[in-house]
Computed example of a mutant assay.
Amino acid sequence: MEGFHFLQALFILTLASSLAYASDPSPLQDFCVAINDPNDAVFVNGKVCKGAKLATADDFFFSGLNIGKITSNSVGSSVTPVNVAQISGLNTLGISLARIDYAANGGLNPPHTHPRATEILVVLEGTLYVGFVTSNPDNRVIAKVLNKGDVFVFPVGLVHFQFNPGKSKAVAIAALSSQDPGVITIANAVFGSDPSINPDVLSKAFKLDKSMVKSLQSKF
């Protein structure tokens, strides 16, 4: 009977660990600095890596998150990513960062998802209204107003957003559980796909007149 209980507990722990797995695979070496030249290199985690003895400090370095970006665009926000594309030494390490700048009076990081990462966001400056939407069938909005120093988590794969309701700019830093979390901005993907999705599909899905669908497609 004790053996049965042990096997039962082992099964439960194994199942829990598999369900909790939500980041990139663990590396099997200290690091694997990504390079674009495939000659005489090793392919690991979607990137070609140079020899460990050729790695330098610059392979693990990025400068510039102290510099804000211009937010005078259609949504009033700008993202500065720091993933494996910017720091080649992040390859296989399963983490990345981003700085987000939000314009005053309505700067928005539009509803989007990260298909490969959970995100944790800390507000460095200003005020943000943030939230995410749970899966079907509930589609419940879980949202909160954040101030300087506040932290909020967006679970992997769920649609989420950030909005600046304040009269001054806002700045936040996001950490993500993937070297390359990916991003799918909902409106861009749906109305700005190339080639365009058949308007009949979107008209029925969003309960919109087809002319309205075509108008929205023309804006993305």
Rank of each mutant, 00 (worst) to 15 (best):
Q179Y: 10
Q179I: 02
Q179W: 12
Q179C: 06
Q179F: 06
Q179M: 05
D180F: 14
D180P: 03
D180M: 11
D180L: 14
D180I: 10
P181L: 09
P181F: 05
P181S: 11
G182R: 11
G182D: 14
G182V: 09
G182L: 13
V183L: 13
V183A: 15
I184M: 13
T185M: 04
T185R: 03
I186T: 13
I186C: 03
I186K: 03
A187E: 07
A187G: 06
A187P: 04
A187Y: 00
A187I: 08
A187T: 04
A187K: 02
N188L: 09
N188C: 03
N188Y: 04
A189S: 15
A189K: 03
A189R: 04
A189L: 08
V190P: 04
V190R: 03
V190M: 12
V190K: 05
V190F: 13
V190L: 15
F191M: 01
F191K: 08
F191I: 03
F191D: 06
F191E: 00
F191L: 15
G192Q: 11
G192H: 09
G192P: 05
G192T: 12
G192N: 11
G192K: 10
S193H: 10
S193A: 15
S193E: 08
D194H: 11
D194A: 05
P195Y: 04
P195V: 05
P195G: 05
P195C: 07
S196P: 05
S196R: 13
S196N: 11
S196M: 04
I197T: 01
I197W: 02
I197Y: 07
I197E: 00
I197N: 00
I197C: 00
N198W: 10
N198V: 12
P199W: 07
P199E: 01
P199L: 04
D200S: 12
D200G: 04
D200W: 01
D200M: 07
V201A: 15
V201W: 05
V201K: 12
V201Y: 14
L202S: 02
L202T: 01
L202D: 02
L202W: 00
S203L: 07
S203V: 02
S203D: 06
K204L: 13
K204S: 13
K204I: 09
K204T: 09
K204C: 03
K204N: 11
A205I: 05
A205R: 02
A205N: 04
F206P: 06
F206Q: 09
F206L: 10
F206M: 01
F206Y: 13
K207M: 12
K207S: 12
K207F: 14
K207G: 05
K207R: 14
L208P: 14
L208N: 09
L208D: 14
L208I: 08
L208Q: 11
L208V: 14
